[in-house]
């Protein structure tokens, strides 16, 4: 168990080649080399707060404004999901709720947990944290579903007086929220999670950090 840093080396995060510490740029792929991204957590939190700020109006303002013969109806994210559920389409309602509510909220919580535990230097469950990060990274983009649904509906449903659908302001803030949380997750340097292990084992190897 040896990290590149312990060996006086630095790993290229783009192509995985190893270089001597102090090498500025990877000769193979041209990526800037950094043993640890020291500004990582600052950027994680900056994007995290921006994403959270955008997520609040995304839930308060309407996502879709539907005009039919009977009147105008505007629906928020949660309202839209409830409406779908009323039609008996429980599966689709669940997809919308999961993609637009459960995933974003869980993402905010997960990123905050990871960043805080790195800041506190927590040494337990490193592999679980790595796993959590991978899930966050993988799942984040799926939150864009609702924005795409709004795009499709407002392009398609333009039937003069009978029915027309227009996007509401929440479409913008929700898209921003998803993009900023994706940037937040991508700014996170996962090597910081694993540093907790080396920080406690300059002496005898501790069993807690392994696997």
């Amino acid at each position: 168990m040896t990290t590149a840093r312990e060996m006086g080396l630095v790993t290229c995060t783009s192509c995985a080649r190893v270089w001597p510490m102090g090498h500025a740029r990877c000769d193979r792929c041209g990526h800037a080399l950094r043993s640890r991204d020291t500004g990582s957590l600052q950027r994680v939190w900056a994007f995290w707060f921006t994403g959270l700020l955008a997520y609040i109006p995304a839930n308060l303002y309407p996502m879709l404004v539907t005009q039919t013969l009977t009147g105008t109806q505007s629906g928020t994210i949660v309202g839209g999901a409830i409406q779908i559920a009323h039609h008996g389409e429980w599966g689709i309602a669940a997809i919308v709720l999961i993609a637009s509510v459960v995933i974003p909220v869980a993402k905010f919580a997960a990123i905050a947990y990871l960043a805080l535990s790195v800041q506190r230097g927590a040494v337990h469950g490193l592999r679980h944290k790595q796993h959590l990060y991978e899930i966050v990274e993988f799942i984040g983009r799926w939150s864009m579903i609702d924005v795409f649904v709004v795009a499709i509906l407002s392009a398609l449903v333009q039937l003069s007086v009978i029915a027309s659908i227009h996007p509401g302001p929440a479409a913008l803030t929700f898209a921003l929220s998803v993009i900023f949380t994706m940037l937040s997750a991508r700014s996170f340097d996962t090597r910081l999670i694993w540093d907790a292990r080396t920080a406690i084992s300059p002496g005898p190897p501790s069993p807690s950090g392994h696997q």
């Binding site: 039609h87 689709i92 984040g140 795409f148 499709i152």
Partner: peptide, 29 residues
């Protein structure tokens, strides 16, 4: 390197699922 960085931002499969959701939403309309 650019192609690798673009990977998470290329959302074709997310959009496909979005189509399915949209179909259900307008089916009664």
């Amino acid at each position: 390197r650019m192609a690798q960085a673009l990977k998470p931002w290329s959302m074709t499969e997310v959009f496909s699922i979005g189509c399915a959701v949209a179909l259900v939403k307008v089916s009664d309309l």
